[in-house]
Design a protein around this nucleic acid. Structure first.
Lengths: 353, 353
DNA sequence: CTGAAAGCGCTTACAG
DNA sequence: CTGAAAGCGCTTACAG
């Protein structure tokens, strides 16, 4: 008999049973009994009655009246992917312990969804939004916290990695190992980290006196969140015949794709070419070879984002908030990097390894 | 100035502007203009006005009135893990195109959360629940669809893999390659697939005349969703000194852990030992070696679960529903399996590869 | 074809 | 200390 919602006792019914007004019952249920100096005896009766009749307030009605939903929206590029899900899991930790729930939506870089989802979430009365690696264009009437967003805007705080330090970690590691000719794979244009990170690399390279050869700089194309684009672009890098002994990838998944392409060309990682990833997703440590990577504290970034958002939601007085909260990377050295070979290797004909 | 919700145009305001009643505007907005034979001209005006003033119905008010929330709850063991996220992404596909949103919670096998989350979601007025690889104990007042749940219960439908076919795919592949001594890694006791899958393996092995050696059967321990437990248990398998040439892992992540342990023991995959995984998570194809695995159509399972749940929610008359919907696996042959060696190899001292 | 009005289940000024 | 009543923003019988 298709009933939709649990037909539970209503406030009206419960107060009728208890012969009290809805106001009184409501106040007790919400823990405001003492505040309104409701007789202890009455409070006991109410609590007991609620228990016996299985009463709990209808959150939809409450939301409508209070104009609060205890719900936030989270928008991510893609749900089945290491980066977003690590952040999500941090968000969940923080939100649920404060009684908040969240909706997740993934836009997959489709412009219509990017535009529409924030509105849809707003129509769902979310009290705030967390945008993970996605730029929110519209000005929103609720606080938004973005993780790696890089769009500074009034009332929006950004959780971001210290990209300068990240670049320094990666490049000085490579320099120490004797690498001079380093190839770079930049992120797709739509990824909000792409520009910021590349700028940090350029500056750090200058500071460390590492030359960046334009022919050794490539950029990821297409929306595929898998290793495909990294593989593709590495093949192209190889075809230019510009020698290099190390490769710095935009992220771990790309690094994995690069390794695949390198191996396909008969090159060994790390013996011939060292590869450095970025993120430290779960799969990085079990990859073969295990990836040397710049670790982003993704889960922690999620927790920070959620805690910050909750703070903004609660903060009625809207002090000026920090525009950004910086988190720090660290270098995880594993097996995909090694001492530079004496001579830069050349791709041979494809050979299985 | 802590305002919580978008102070957007209300129905009242919009109808005042258009000089129409709320009823008329509401009907047009909800696509019932023709049904109520509202003049086409009027409909145009309404739609245009809504567009101009950015009106969209407050879903909280609508929910309260209709007693529907257009929201479902999804409960998963772990959010940052390949299996759940693949299913989630299928769920999202299906739900959002029908205007439903979903809450996600992950219980991490904590009994208090397993018990509490369904209730919390109910208080949030979810119209149904999808349980991914988790057994729901309580009888719920809303439809429940479970993905790999294996708890048949009144009014609950289970999306499940054809485990017999899965076992057949894996074992006959191995048999064809000449493997006779096969090691098995069963899932953790808490995973709902564990028993069902193992039973299928035992029966299929009998049918194919493949002997199962008790000493070559191990089981995953602990909650760690990563490759650790697989590695651990493979080391133990190796220590028994029982020869084997192939290993069938409970899932891909475990297979990756097993390969790590095998390599650590100086064994080559697939030359010495063939390894078969299960699931075909994203990382399986880029692993080294790329994993031969029994593919579960995870995303499709998520879509099916969502579509089924939506059907149950809509179906006022509650016909008897099928208790289970079966989906089919297929074998993805990659590089972690090969012809069995003439003699079962022995682990040597650890050697880096 | 369109509208006036009730009511979903709460919370919260306002009053006493 | 407690209650009567308004109102959150919709949808939907009911009426014409």
């Amino acid at each position: 008999m298709g009933r939709r919602l649990l037909k539970s006792t209503s406030l009206k019914e419960l107060s009728a049973i208890l012969k009290l007004s809805q106001s009184t019952v409501s106040r007790v249920i919400n823990g405001e009994g003492d505040k309104f100096r409701i007789a202890r005896e009455t409070q006991k009766r109410v609590l007991h009655g609620a228990d016996v009749h299985g009463y709990s307030a209808n959150t939809v009605a409450r939301s409508l009246r209070q104009k609060r939903s205890y719900t936030v929206g989270v928008i991510v590029p893609e749900i089945s992917e290491g980066y977003s899900t690590a952040v999500l899991s941090g968000i969940e930790d923080e939100l649920l312990k404060d009684g908040y729930f969240y909706f997740v939506v993934s836009h997959r870089h489709r412009p219509d969804l990017l535009k529409g989802y924030p509105r849809m979430m707003l129509a769902r009365a979310v009290e705030g939004i967390i945008a993970v690696d996605t730029a929110i264009e519209d000005e929103l009437p609720v606080p938004v916290v973005s993780v790696s967003g890089h769009r500074h805007r009034e009332g929006m705080v950004n959780i971001e990695l210290d990209h300068d330090q990240a670049a320094h970690l990666a490049l000085s590691h490579l320099k120490t190992l004797g690498h001079h000719r380093i190839a770079f794979i930049k992120g797709q244009a739509f990824s909000s980290d792409t520009n910021r990170r590349w700028r940090a690399i350029v500056e750090t390279a200058k500071a460390l006196e590492i030359a960046i050869h334009p022919q050794l700089v490539a950029q990821l194309q297409g929306m595929d969140p898998g290793p495909g684009p990294g593989m593709e672009v590495t093949r192209q890098l190889l075809q230019t015949n510009q020698p290099f002994t190390a490769l710095l990838a935009f992220n771990d998944v790309t690094a994995m794709g690069a390794i695949l392409a390198l191996r396909e060309a008969g090159l060994s990682v790390p013996k011939d070419i060292s590869v450095v990833g970025f993120d430290d997703v779960l799969a990085a440590s079990t990859y073969n070879p295990p990836l040397t990577t710049v670790r982003q504290p993704l889960r922690n970034m999620g927790q920070t984002a959620a805690a910050t958002l909750l703070g903004l939601i609660r903060d009625e007085t809207s002090h000026p908030h920090p525009a950004a909260i910086t988190v720090y990377p660290n270098l995880v050295v594993r097996k995909s990097t090694a001492q530079a070979p004496a001579h830069a290797p050349h791709a041979t004909t494809a050979a299985a390894v």
